[in-house]
Amino acid sequence: MEFSFYLIQLLNGIQYGFLLFLVASGLTLVFGIMDVINLAHGSFYMIGAYLAFWLTGIFGSLFLGIVLAIPLAVALGFVVERLAIAYLYKKGHLHQVLLTYALILIFDEAQRFLWGNDSHGVDIPAALSGSITLTDIQVYPVYRLFVSFVCIVIGVGMFYVIQKTKLGMTIRAGASNRQMTQALGINIERLFTIVFSLGVGLAAFAGMIAAPIDSLYPGMGDNILIISLVVVVIGGIGSIKGAFVGAMIIGVSSIFGKTLFPSMASIVVYAMMAGILIWKPQGLFKSA
């Protein structure tokens, strides 16, 4: 009983950590490569979730909904980058904070305009709605395992792209030395557009697959944004590895925090971040 209880918490923590990793990896790349603070990153998680909700409602299938929603989200990322973010590359952090903050206001209100103030939910697809029996009374839902599995597949895919492909090489070069990348004659603007759109795609995808286990509500992007920022800062800005480790630390500790110290759960995460940063002001895996 005791053991399987902790096992479930651990599985939940890891699964939450994986979701955070999808959101935070895009955020950390945008920070590291483009030197842009994108506060609107959490909004894309929200948009992904609502797109999945909307398209699943129309087509009756979460899978079909997600397949259709991904290109929409990436396209949105592309448009936002071209119309607004592109202007920020030569600006200071202050203007980046302000402009992306304004984007949050716009996205949040657009969400209320389109889908209203009520909370919504998405049904778990029938094929994945079962549970695995751990003990007589403890079960674990298959869909959560599925989410972790999908995240692992994407994580491995991302690792492959970043380590083995030419695009990945450019991204790594950009994250460690921006001037160098420019000097090497790489089209930096195109790289930025690609990185930003991919980051948006990852965040939106996280929102889509999380939709059946998380409820959809106005302002849901804020929570995931702040927690992802914590992940990025703990891991070290620009480091994918750091984002992964940070996401796991925060994922597991916040789930255990909720069960062990329910009244102080949210504080645990921030206290941990403060502790890590007092120890290592540049995060755990600061690249160069």
């Binding site: 920022l229 914590v230 800005i237 949210s266 504080i267 206290a271 940063l277």
Partner: peptide, 24 residues
């Protein structure tokens, strides 16, 4: 102790800690 993006993020996160303290 930090600067740039780290400073912005730290002030944000530490303020949220106080927010949650009163929230809970």
């Amino acid at each position: 102790r930090t600067s740039g993006i780290y400073f912005i993020m730290l002030t944000l996160a530490l303020a949220q800690m106080f927010y949650y303290y009163f929230f809970e």
